[in-house]
Design a binder for these strands. Sequence first.
DNA 1: AAAGTAGTTGACTATTTAGTTAAGTAGAAT
DNA 2: ATTCTACTTAACTAAATAGTCAACTACTTT
Lengths: 204, 204
Amino acid sequence: MGRVSDAKERLMESVSELIWTGSYGSTTIDQICDKAGVKKGSFYYFFDSKADVATTALEADWEKRRMELDALFSATVPPLERLRRYCEFSYRVQSEMKARYGHVLGCPLHSVGSEVCTQEDQLGAKILGILEYKRKYLESAIRDAAAAGLIEAPDAAAKSRCLFAYYQGLATQARIQNNLEILRDAVQGTFDLLGVREPSSAAA
Amino acid sequence: MGRVSDAKERLMESVSELIWTGSYGSTTIDQICDKAGVKKGSFYYFFDSKADVATTALEADWEKRRMELDALFSATVPPLERLRRYCEFSYRVQSEMKARYGHVLGCPLHSVGSEVCTQEDQLGAKILGILEYKRKYLESAIRDAAAAGLIEAPDAAAKSRCLFAYYQGLATQARIQNNLEILRDAVQGTFDLLGVREPSSAAA
DNA sequence: AAAGTAGTTGACTATTTAGTTAAGTAGAAT
DNA sequence: ATTCTACTTAACTAAATAGTCAACTACTTT
C-alpha cells in the first residue's frame, strides 16, 4: 500500500481557501502548492490541472456542508423557522470569514460559478449541480410552508428560484461591499418575498 | 496636436468584451491588444495596467448605458411600469448577448465585482459606485410607488436593496446556467417582492 | 514647408506559470 | 528483512505574460 499522506487533502483545502478569498483566475498552481506545503510534482501526482483540483475541492466542501444543511432544514423544524435559521447560519459563517480574512467572502459557488461558467465546462457543471441541491432545501421548505397555510405559494419551485436568486444576490453584494450588515436583511427579505402574513413574529 | 487615433477606444471595447464573455482574471493584456488590433507599446501609452483599462472601460460603458436607464426610469412613467420596463430591457439585452456570443452573460458589474473585490481595490470601488447609482433608480421608483399607494414600503431604501439583490441574483444565475428563461420570472418576482396588490395587471 | 505633437512599432528583458521527469524515500505487506 | 507501492523531490523545459524603450510615422499648427 506504500506510504500514506494527507497532501491531497492539504491541496484541496488550499485551493478552496485561495479561490474563496481571491478568485479562481488569480490562483496559481504554485500558490496552491506553497500554501499546502507540497511540491509541484506531488500536485501533478494527485491532480491533472487547476480545474481538476478546484472541482474536487468544491465537491468535498459541499459534502462537508451537506450535513449541516440537512440539520438546518430538517423536516422536524417548522418550515419558516428553517429559513430563518439558514439566514442566521449564513450570517454566522460570513462573520467568521470576515474575522479570519478581513473580508466578507460570500458564497464560492456563486462567485466561482459566475467567473468560470463561460470557460470551464466541467467545473461549471459541478457548481451548477451543487447549487441545484441547495435550491431543493428552499423548495421543500416553501412547499411545507404553503401546505401549513403559512404562505401562498402554488408553485413552490418558482418561489424557491426567486428566493434563491435573492440569497445569491445578498451574498454577492455582501462580498463586493465587504459589508456584513447587508446580510441582516435576509430574514425580513425572505418573509417579504414569500408574503408571510405576520411579518413580525418568526414562524409557526 | 499630432495624429489622432481611436486605439484607446478600441482597447476599452476589447477589454469590456473579453471580461464580460470570459473573466477579468483570464483576460490578458496581449489578448486585449490582439482583439483591438493594437500593439502592446500603444497599450502602455494609454494605460498603466489591466486594472486601469478595465476601470476606465467600465466607467465608459456605464456612461453610455446611463441615458437608457434615465429614459426607462423617467419620472413621467408610472413607477411600477418603470420596473417592468427595466426587466424587459434587461431580458432583451441578455438575449442579444446570448445570440451574439452563445452565452448569457449577466451583469459585468456583478461578476467582475465579485471576482476582483478582494484584490483590486480601485476597480472594486469604481464598480461599487456604479452599482450604487443603479440602485438609486430602484429606490426612487419604489418610493414613488409607495407614494401612489401601489405598494406598502415605509423604507424605500431597504426595499430597493432587497430588490437589487434579487436582480443581481437572477442575472448571475442566468449566466451560470446559461439560461435566458430565468429572467422571465423577473417581473413577477419584482411584484411579489414588493407586495403589489393586483399581481396580474401590470401597473397603474 | 518646418516644427512640434500624438500615437505607433517591433524588438527586447525579466518573470511567472504550467507541466515533466527521473531518481529517491518512507511506510505497508509479505 | 525485503519487496512493493504510494508518495516526494529538485531540477528541468517551454510557453505565456507583463512591462520597457528608442526609433519611427502621421497628423496639425504655424
